[in-house]
Amino acid sequence: HRVLLCEDIMSRDVISVDEHAPADQARHLLLDHNIRTLPVTDAEGGLVGVVGLRELTKATDAVRAVMSKAGTASPDTPAMSLLPVLTDGRSHAVVIVDAERRIIGLITQTDLLAAAARVHMADTTLAAA
């Protein structure tokens, strides 16, 4: 079997918000879609950061004023290499980007945990055979 890559487990329908959008719009997107991390894009659609409810709690400005640096990876990055980022206590997702920093996917803690469980179960089944 081969190494599991980010492109194998990433969510492809990524909801994002423009950096100039009001904080209220970002709050609504997070709550309406029940997500924890919202990628923030520039006018060309490139990733410039991420925002979550914690940053938006008291924000009244545009999203750009409260966004933080995004954890990123490429589609061909081994998925398990995201483990340190997604277990740091601060990051809930890693944004998968192409060479121009356009968003092509997102991997959450839950995505990585589910993939690790599938790999573990497959390894356990092979070992028992």
Rank of each mutant, 00 (worst) to 15 (best):
A79N: 11
L30N: 11
A93S: 14
A21D: 14
V14G: 05
D98W: 11
A43L: 01
D111T: 03
T124D: 09
D88T: 11
R36C: 05
D88F: 10
D13K: 10
R54W: 05
D123E: 15
D32I: 03
A73W: 04
V50R: 09
A23H: 10
M80G: 06
T77H: 03
R27A: 10
P39H: 07
H20V: 02
A99H: 04
D88C: 08
D88P: 10
A99F: 04
A122R: 13
K58M: 03
G45Q: 07
A129K: 15
A117I: 11
A21V: 09
A122F: 05
M80V: 08
D98Y: 12
T60A: 02
G46Q: 10
R101C: 06
G71N: 09
E55W: 03
V95A: 00
A115R: 14
D24H: 13
A43S: 11
R27S: 06
A79F: 01
A43H: 05
A65Q: 09
D98A: 03
G89T: 07
L4P: 03
E55Q: 13
D98V: 06
I15M: 04
R64A: 13
E100F: 04
A23R: 02
D42L: 00
T57V: 12
L38K: 05
D8C: 02
A122M: 12
A65M: 05
E44R: 01
I35H: 00
L29T: 07
D13C: 01
A23F: 03
L82Y: 12
V94E: 02
A116L: 15
E55S: 02
V119K: 10
G45H: 05
